[in-house]
Design a protein around this nucleic acid. Structure first.
Lengths: 209, 209
DNA sequence: CTTGCATGAGACCGATCGGTATCGTTCGGG
DNA sequence: CCCGAACGATACCGATCGGTCTCATGCAAG
């Protein structure tokens, strides 16, 4: 009835958005809606509508809503991991640049995320059950990131790499929630300056006064 | 109003828990369930059940579920504010002790909220609408805390009080989410050591190398 | 005692939830 | 060419949601 299948053939400028296969459209719609409204607040019908498909099609690709949530979070986590992979290959023997790249990555994302919040932090708030697969996925991802950061701190010759990694993790996570609740202005620029200072301070030189 | 009427007279050993008036029991139940399961995940019937009362009684005291949510968050915010008030009167002319007291307050709360998370951070994730009264309440509370912390940093003679307050805010918020998602062990002890170090470093003395 | 009122208990409402069943259409590969 | 799989639309299911209504009970002040 509505728009559908326009210009089947030459396709000119495809009906809307160069329709991807349904599964991808569903995941895109889920990304948009879950991150904007939250998991519980979004019904499968709304996702199907925004994906320009139907609930039935959704359930042909995902066994349950939880499975879709899990797949969405898996993709988000993979995106983050890929970004950090790129940073490591871009600065192979400069762990300091890798750490600052991570901070920059978060800082640059703050305006976009502002008032919407980090998908992991928001989602974990709606997943109080530690046994839920989606929550375990998030925790595994965060644990992996922490391990990675600790390793970078060690390679950067920072004193007490565990403590340094904890401090930087606190700063990155805290910047995201503070940007979300609006308590800190210019959180991105501040975050960068602070992380740089932490790195400088924890460098080998100044162990004792 | 509250404490009141315990042991009306003989009252024996009151049926269960020295039954408070229904309104207080409802707020206690809401506190327990909202902070453990999340706002959207808890129905009004469940709150009424846990409060050993009925849905009707609940709606006699609160116009809507949102109003109950708002009142709950108002109480939580007031508890935090009261704790910080106490710190200020306990150390009237020692802003450094006030700041460390705040950090200690958060650090001590980490094991309790571990895996459950900060009520504000969790709730804001379920309130994507910035115009929602409950969200505005949270944002106002956080803004007030930030102002207060900035003031303490200034009185502690820290260089760049805004930046110092931002750094400490990041650390406190980040410690809570990291404790929740389990990526950092011993988050409380680490937080205290890190905040102390930040305070030392930002003290007047070491402005230039 | 009697009046008044907050409570307790439970049926009830329309809406929406996650998930399923049915059926006609579309379309690409043998 | 045609057949089977995927897709779109829609109706439907039982459960639960926030919220309302009715009515019986308990209890305290007049």
């Amino acid at each position: 009835m509505e728009g559908g299948m326009v210009s089947t053939e030459r396709a000119g400028r495809q009906s809307r958005v160069a329709k991807l296969p349904p599964r991808e459209r569903i995941l895109d719609a889920a990304e948009e809606l879950f991150s904007r409204e939250g998991i519980k607040a979004v019904g499968v019908q709304a996702i199907a509508d925004r994906a320009e498909t139907t609930k039935m099609a959704l359930y042909r690709h995902f066994a349950t809503k939880d499975a879709l949530v899990e797949e969405w979070l898996r993709i988000v986590a993979a995106d983050y991991t890929a970004a950090f992979d790129r940073l490591e290959t871009a600065h192979p023997d400069d762990p300091r640049a890798q750490i600052l790249g991570m901070a920059r990555f978060i800082a640059d994302g703050l305006p976009a995320i502002s008032h919407r919040g980090c998908p992991f932090i928001n989602s974990i708030a709606e997943l109080p059950d530690r046994d839920h697969p989606a929550r375990q996925l998030i925790e595994a991802h965060k644990a992996g990131q922490a391990r990675r950061l600790t390793d970078q701190c060690a390679r950067a010759r920072l004193a007490d790499p565990d403590e340094a990694a904890a401090e930087i993790t606190f700063l990155l996570e805290g910047a995201q929630v503070s940007a979300q609740n609006g308590s800190i202005d210019h959180a991105g620029e501040r975050l960068m300056r602070i992380v740089e200072a932490v790195l400088d301070r924890r460098s080998a030189a100044d162990s004792a006064p």
